[in-house]
Amino acid sequence: MKSWRTSSTRRGRALLLGLLCGLVLLSALLSMCLGASPISPRDILPALLNEGDTAAAQIIRYARLPRTCGCLLAGAALAVSGAVIQSVLDNPLAAPNIIGVSSGAGLAAALCGALAPAAGGLIPAAAFAGALAAVLLVLFIAERTGASKLTLVLAGVAVSGMFSAGIDAVVTFIPDALNGWSDFRIGGLSNLAMGRIIPAFWVVLAAMALIFSLAGEMDILMLGGDTAQSLGVRAKPLRLILLALAAALAGAAVSFSGLLGFVGLIVPHIMRRLLGEDSRPLLAGCALGGAAVLTLCDLLARLLFAPYELPVGIVLSLAGGPFFIWLLLRQRGGRSHD
């Protein structure tokens, strides 16, 4: 399987990242054009520039554009969050939805909806707080018990279960908490409005910028705590900062897309295999790949049983699971220790 081998040369990586950029653009274009009523690519630009008031322009502006932006943003945020969490915890099984970061964000969002239904703008902040609480809890357990990689994931699963139960409890007592957000548990991006995306967008932008600026530190952290420290990195505070940023990304995504699984687990793994473990290209690949994967899955969710729509979370799991298993079967190796 030569074609799946890590491309370690600069040129190979640049080419791959270029291809991913193209894929993102293509998926965004398709997402704008296809759906219950197909729209010609020619009509998109005028609609985006606020020209014309045709039905097509309305659909683009109020349905397809928010949805496409939401997919791109949530996909990129979750994939980068997953890559950071995996690197920092040095654990390939970790991902925002597995170690409870997503459900922590979800619980906080549900609580926010239940207690202050009018303050929709607070949801991203609440989701961030919830995600951060979950990540700190898992980190605390890991440090306290000196936990092995498996224990850490199990602790995360327990945390995730508790927060999920919390979401169910909130929704049971206050059915309006998630305001008819029927897809929240599985993750869905229908009925998105730009207003819900924009606060999350700023959070994602800031967190991504900071994470990219810490890519060099992430590289060093991957060499192990002792080596990192002997190279002048303060490992503990750095881990905390990176996990907090990963939580911010996951929280922002959850605040408008619900509990999407799998993007944060699969995309980093694919990118690690394609691009290697250098943090800067890896993170860039994750952002692009996550955006493309989620947008394409959302497109499938819309088209497969049109005019009925599936929540994208279902497509993601159905397509992502088998693909991931295939990848595991075809490839061996990854990280090992001397």
Binding site: T6, S8, D219, M222, L223, G224, D226, T227, Q229, S230, L231, G232, V233, R234, R272, G276, E277, D278, G334, R335, S336, H337, D338
Partner: peptide, 20 residues
């Protein structure tokens, strides 16, 4: 930590093998 790192280099006993 950075000043220390410029005074002493360290080769630890267990070494990770990242995919780079």
């Amino acid at each position: 930590p950075r000043e220390r790192a410029r005074k002493a280099a360290y080769l630890p006993q267990t070494r990770s093998v990242p995919n780079i």
